[in-house]
């Protein structure tokens, strides 16, 4: 038995891409961990590096990706631990790609092959990852479709992705991702393309499945409301950097980084319709023009000037297991911690 209590530990993940316009940093020294049965919410705007971070766990980034030598992604399975960064051949990679780790993508229409039935795609991956016979794989796939709330599962099994509605497709995607019994599920914006009513159904389904299968989930989204309803822990990313991390209650009730505070203030609240909507000023900078010092200082409403634009802030604790990378917190308690959520 593996004594490690975490399922996956990402340490110092730094990822750069070689592009025609130069080398750009997509992820900068990011560390986090997920335990079995735990849901980690990864939040940030588009361009913050959430998806690239998630894809690193399966080494799915394109060929021009360069991982720094310090990067370690340790996957702790029952009988062994592997460093995903050290896996070379595609056969070795099977453990991370669909074996112990599965992934659900944002647009289920784009992630199913359009000319192969849902059922055939489910059976195919089971034949690769398990020792099931075709008949057993088929039976099990239909069971999984039924389990995620798809009615007439044996009929749906024979259909193509275009014949299913958006919600159905996302359920089928979840069924497919879970059928190999992964230890870690990465869900990249799984509900963003769905209606609120269907989103609620999918969130409930995922919560039930975590309980039932005891797996860990990395839930990527830009919607803090969805995070509040699903995650146990939250990690907020901005321009490839982790800027705040902690339990979902701590981060949402007591957001301490000016960026997290801005994200929460930008959410339209239903209990106060008169409250003005406040955007986070400016746009996320291009990764080619990465700001020096704290990456957020160009948009930060309370930045300190020289210190913020020249020195990279270290993580400091606000509460137990709630850490923030911000000079304001580091230096003193200038920031009124009670801002936002009230």
């Amino acid at each position: 038995m593996n004594k490690n209590k975490n399922l996956i530990e990402v340490e110092n993940l730094t990822l750069q891409f070689d592009t025609d316009e130069g080398r750009i940093t997509a992820v900068d020294n990011v560390s986090f961990s997920v335990a079995p049965g735990e849901v980690l919410g990864l939040v940030g705007e588009s361009g913050s590096g959430k998806s690239v971070t998630a894809k690193s766990l399966m080494k799915l980034n394109p060929g021009n990706a360069i991982y720094s030598p310090e990067t370690k992604i340790k996957l702790h399975l029952e009988d062994r631990s592997v460093d995903i960064m050290q896996l070379k051949s595609s056969k070795e990679m099977l453990v991370a790609r669909g074996g112990a780790i599965s992934m659900i993508f944002q647009e289920p229409m784009a992630s199913f092959a359009p000319a192969i039935t849902i059922g055939d795609q489910m059976v195919e991956q089971l034949l690769i990852h398990t020792d099931y016979s075709v008949a057993k794989a088929k039976k099990y796939s239909i069971e999984m479709l039924d389990r995620v709330g798809i009615s007439d599962a044996d009929q749906r099994f024979k259909q193509y992705a275009f014949e299913l509605s958006g919600g159905m497709r996302q359920r089928a995607m979840i069924a497919m991702a879970l059928s190999t019994k992964p230890k870690l599920l990465i869900a990249d914006e799984p509900t963003t393309a769905l209606d609120v009513t269907i989103q609620l159904q999918v969130i409930d389904l995922m919560k039930d499945l975590v309980k039932e299968f005891g797996m860990g989930i990395i839930f990527i989204t830009h919607d803090l409301g969805v995070i509040a309803q699903t995650a146990d822990k939250v990690a907020v990313m901005y321009l490839g950097k982790l800027i705040e991390q902690g339990s979902v209650r701590d981060v949402i009730r007591n957001p301490s980084h000016p960026y997290t505070q801005g994200l929460i203030a930008a959410l339209p609240q239903l209990d106060n319709l008169d409250a003005p909507l406040v955007a986070v000023a400016g746009d996320i900078p291009s990764p080619l023009e990465r700001p020096s010092g704290c990456v957020f200082h160009t948009r930060c409403p309370v930045h300190l000037g020289g210190q913020c634009s020249s020195m990279v802030p270290e993580f400091s604790s606000v509460e137990r297991s709630h850490t923030v990378a911000c000079h304001l917190i580091e230096a003193s308690n200038l920031v009124d911690k009670k801002v936002a959520v009230s």
Binding site: S165, G167, M168, V196, T197, I198, Q199, L200, Q201, I203, D204, K207, D223, L224, G225, V226, A228, Q229, V248, R249, I252, I264, L267, Q269, L270, V341
Partner: peptide, 24 residues
């Protein structure tokens, strides 16, 4: 009412309080 209820709340303790609309 169901649409309003399905908007994810920012309060983690609200989980399970939303009125779930079955089907599509």
């Amino acid at each position: 009412k169901a649409l309003l209820s399905a908007i994810p709340s920012l309060d983690p303790d609200d989980y399970g309080k939303a009125e779930k609309l079955e089907g599509e």
